[in-house]
């Protein structure tokens, strides 16, 4: 076989037009005015990659460069060296590329859906309580400086709700340092749990509740978040998903930082599962304390109808759709709400 290419002698950048004969015995490299012989057992042939030129490196560091990929592939087959073309065999075909794409998508999806939450859950359980407390206190500070104002509820009102909360958490004995904080401001009608057992409830949320049972349903939901260490898990999950995006998109420099924000959307789905977990805790707590589950549904539905104006599509929402989490009943059908609900 004769392969056309160029020879570089490793001492200068001079290019020498040459052809390589690989028929039996030593390989013969011939060009105008020169002929060289090489021992075929001592040459290194570069792996196939797209259509980049192939290089045959000889013992003395000199090399032969040729664009004739097919001839080199035939030569490798002749020598029984298939290793150098294996990855190329995969990279060559669109069908395999699309299968690889499906594989990457599947692994990515599985990792976000199961891997990241599991890792975050494990990490959250092993993070010392002192770290938890520091994050909780810092978050409260940030919220207080930017979004929240001190509560305008009367002290009697505050201490009544606080007593309710203390009774609820007194016998939990789960190692969390529960504390209820009253706030108002840009948080709207809301209640949320921070790491280390700090639960913030807004004035509007207290006012939204028609009775203590409803208030307890909301508080039990937040206690469910604390017990599952959901706040910490979400922080860890967000970091995990962003890190994965960076791994997948390697070195896009400017763009990667922007794309890394994208998985935050996928993150919303995980947080819906955490909400469902907290809902379940609230319902079980109500059951255990002989309070009808309907109280939970009532306040959730009222909350939903109040926020109806700024509805987001379900996949973007961080909370499950109310139809998924509570059975809402219009006011005219009110008597039905009193019936015990089993689901």
């Amino acid at each position: 076989m004769s392969i056309q290419g160029r020879y570089f002698d490793a001492t200068s950048a001079q290019a020498h037009e040459a052809s390589l004969e690989t028929m039996g015995g030593p390989w013969r490299l011939s060009g105008p005015g020169r002929e060289l012989l090489f021992d075929p057992s001592q040459v290194k042939i570069s792996d196939r990659l797209g259509n980049i030129p192939r290089r045959i490196r000889f013992e003395d560091g000199s090399e032969f460069e040729t664009p004739d990929n097919d001839a080199i592939d035939a030569l490798l087959r002749e020598r029984g060296q298939v290793r150098g073309t294996m990855v190329h065999a995969l990279e060559r075909r669109w069908g395999i590329a699309l299968a690889a794409l499906a594989g990457v998508a599947l692994v990515t999806f599985a990792f976000i859906k199961y891997g990241v939450p599991a890792l975050a859950g494990w990490t959250a359980r092993h993070v010392p309580a002192s770290v938890d407390q520091r994050i909780g206190a810092q978050t409260l500070d940030i919220l207080d400086n930017g979004f929240m104002r001190p509560s305008k509820l009367s002290l009697q009102q505050q201490s009544r709700v606080d007593n309710l909360f203390r009774r609820m958490t007194a016998d939990l004995q789960d190692g969390h340092d529960y504390r209820l904080e009253f706030r108002t401001g840009a948080i709207g009608t809301n209640a949320f749990a921070l790491p280390s057992g700090i639960i913030v409830i807004s004035d509007d949320m207290v006012k939204l509740a028609h009775n203590d049972e409803e208030l307890m349903a909301v508080l039990a939901h937040e206690i469910g978040h604390v017990r599952g260490r959901h706040a910490l898990r979400q922080i860890i999950q967000a970091a995990g998903v962003s890190a994965m995006a960076l791994v997948l998109l390697g070195d896009v420099s400017t763009i990667s930082s922007l794309v890394a924000a994208g998985p935050a959307l996928l993150q919303a789905r995980n947080s819906r599962e955490l909400e469902a977990e907290a809902d379940e805790f609230s319902r079980q707590w109500l059951d255990a304390n002989g309070i009808a589950r309907s109280h939970f549904d009532d306040i959730m539905c009222r909350l939903e109808s109040q926020m109806h104006s700024d509805e987001l599509p379900s996949f973007l929402s961080s909370h499950p759709a109310t139809s998924e989490r509570a059975r809402c009943v219009s006011e005219s059908e009110a008597p039905a709400a009193a019936e015990p609900q089993e689901n």
């Binding site: 990659l49 797209g50 259509n51 990855v87 995969l90 990279e91 060559r92 075909r93 669109w94 395999i96 590329a97 690889a100 794409l101 594989g103 990457v104 692994v107 997948l248």
Partner: peptide, 11 residues
């Protein structure tokens, strides 16, 4: 061509 190389090596 680079897409095929990228995705196979990524997997």
């Amino acid at each position: 061509e680079y897409f095929r190389i990228w995705i196979v090596n990524l997997l």
